[in-house]
Design a binder for these strands. Structure first.
Lengths: 339, 339
DNA sequence: TTGTAGGCGTTATCAA
DNA sequence: TTGATAACGCCTACAA
């Protein structure tokens, strides 16, 4: 990595320039910009005229340094590639913007070590607050954030201990509800395609939700055939094939998300299996893919946009020194044609 | 919008703290961090020990203020909601990260006025460089960037005049190629569902590509039936219905992107039309949706990830004071089952 | 190789 | 209501 050198500074106007032109002090200009009510209407006008004339825009680095606050909020998400997080983050960003904050993003590629690195990077960059996905991470990270007094909101999950601010939903409950429906349809041999349950709390809770439903129905949870794989259509296909070629192929395959489910759907078609007659398949998230799929997917609807919006509000609240409450959003089984 | 007040500053270590602990000056610490080669191995070790012990992390606001550079690069995209931009932006971010830069994002909701506002915001926030989508915008913006000496790369398009740095592809050529195939299949009555051609250069060029192919084939371009609408599956459905209920329903409907095409596909199914027998439908972008669609979509493949990566590199080059060349990436018609 | 010291553009405290 | 002025944390000539 080489040094980046900046070309000779272009002369962008500063507070001092505005002050000079308006014939006031820089302090007054600053007030006009930040607390207009603490200034005479007349001086305000004079100053704003100067601002407009010069095309002045504040230097946020300087402002951040002086004020100890950047108005930037960071979000670290596993990936930007699929619609799962995109919708929520889009809403998050819109809400931030309404409140004068800018979004700083980083992606962790579903890796905990990278996430930790990103957290340090974004905080060093001055992120005033952070949006994180899920709750499972090294306790040191939480200590770090606490020590630095950086509010964080955990999303796409409901933090069980309630020790942290979270705006999300109960993955376990949501999946249990769907699993109960699956079992209600008479399925007794069930398969599951999941993301890595060791590091991904959302994935783990979803699997646990299936187990819970099985127990409630008097089924032996151990009979759930779980295949763990990374989220992608291709992996969903492979996992489905693996499940169906086993000794005791499931009659229903519950997938950790819609992307995997679409893969399963394709694999089923390749195997000549009719969905849902030969095999039932379910998803999770209710992204576009779900209702555009070859067979419209029965899945769990998650209020992504609302979650992003509320997460932003919670963080803004926290930055205002208030103590926002965690919120658990409702999810809802969306019945379509694969169950 | 209310003031955000920060809680009493948590004591995060500063350069001075490190210097004190290592028994050197702040200048030396700064050198250890930025130009390790200009420092004794011994002092480097002493200093780095202190850094680690204190858990020091640089304050980027201060650094930015002093150095006149933030190492943040902004991207303003029409929307983060769908996969069209997500894949490219993800790659862009990954490449930035490799080079020590952080991504700042804003979305313009496909509105030129908002985009302009975002450009000003991100530059005020200190973005060293910018990624923009398309090339059509108020010339004043380009002047503004030039005056501020902020490198910008135009993407998802090839800037025709070659006056600006761009890393993208030729929308016109790409769509012309696809249209030529459509015509080659014998279609003479063609429809087109496009985004707003007045403000969206990519959309406009794609339509022009169809016209060009028609002219080459001796067809009258005016006979192309164009419906303009915002990108969404629902709008694609509505537009398709509108086209098919016209006096002279097309036998082929070329869509401005895959999202619209999927909508068209659904509408066709609702109307009881077989694709491609009764009507051909094409997309653009080749996002996941395209090959998962009820009928796998014939579309134009765009190298999104490569584009994002090269755009990042171009910007980094520019920040190093070099003059990167624009690059036009090849696209390629992906034949599947809807034509 | 290292230290000194000025300055980057704002904010915010304190007087006036 | 306004104006001086001291931070804010770091970088970088310039000296030593």
């Amino acid at each position: 990595m080489e040094e980046i050198s900046k070309s000779p500074v272009s002369d962008v106007p500063t507070l001092a320039d505005v002050a000079a032109r308006a014939g006031v002090s820089t302090a007054t200009v600053s007030r006009c910009l930040n607390t207009p009510d603490r200034v005479t209407e007349k001086t305000l006008k004079t100053v704003m005229d100067a601002v407009n004339h010069l095309g002045y825009a504040p230097n946020y680095s300087a402002r951040a340094l002086a004020a100890g606050r950047t108005n930037m909020i960071g979000a670290i998400i596993p990936t930007m590639e699929n619609a799962i997080f995109a919708r929520g983050i889009q809403a998050f960003q819109e809400e931030l913007q309404k409140n004068g904050c800018t979004l700083l993003v980083a992606s962790s590629s579903y890796r905990q070590d990278l996430e930790e690195e990103q957290i340090r990077t974004l905080t060093a960059r001055g992120a005033d607050a952070l949006l994180l996905i899920g709750y499972q991470r090294d306790p040191q990270i939480y200590e770090f954030l606490k020590k630095r007094k950086i509010p964080a909101v955990l999303t796409w999950a409901s933090e069980p201990s309630q020790n942290f601010l979270s705006v999300g939903f109960d993955n376990r409950k949501a999946m249990k509800e769907l699993a109960t429906d699956v079992i209600g349809k008479g399925h007794r041999t069930i398969g599951c395609i999941s993301a890595d349950t060791a590091t991904n709390d959302r994935a783990r809770e979803r699997v646990e939700g299936i187990w819970a439903a099985m127990r409630d129905a008097g089924l032996e949870p151990d009979t759930l055939q779980v295949v763990e794989t990374a989220y992608s259509i291709e992996n969903g296909e492979a996992a489905f094939q693996q499940l169906m070629s086993g000794a005791n192929p499931p009659t229903a395959v519950m997938c950790g998300n819609d992307v995997l489910a679409v893969g399963a759907l394709r694999a089923a078609a390749d195997l000549g299996l009719k969905v849902p007659d030969d095999v039932a398949i379910t998803g999770f998230d209710n992204i576009e893919l779900a209702f555009v799929a070859p067979v419209p997917l029965t899945t769990v609807h998650v209020p992504h946009r609302r979650m992003g919006q509320l997460a932003a509000r919670a963080l803004i609240e926290a930055l205002h020194g208030r103590s926002p409450e965690s919120v658990e959003l409702p999810t809802e089984v969306r019945h379509r044609n694969t169950l």
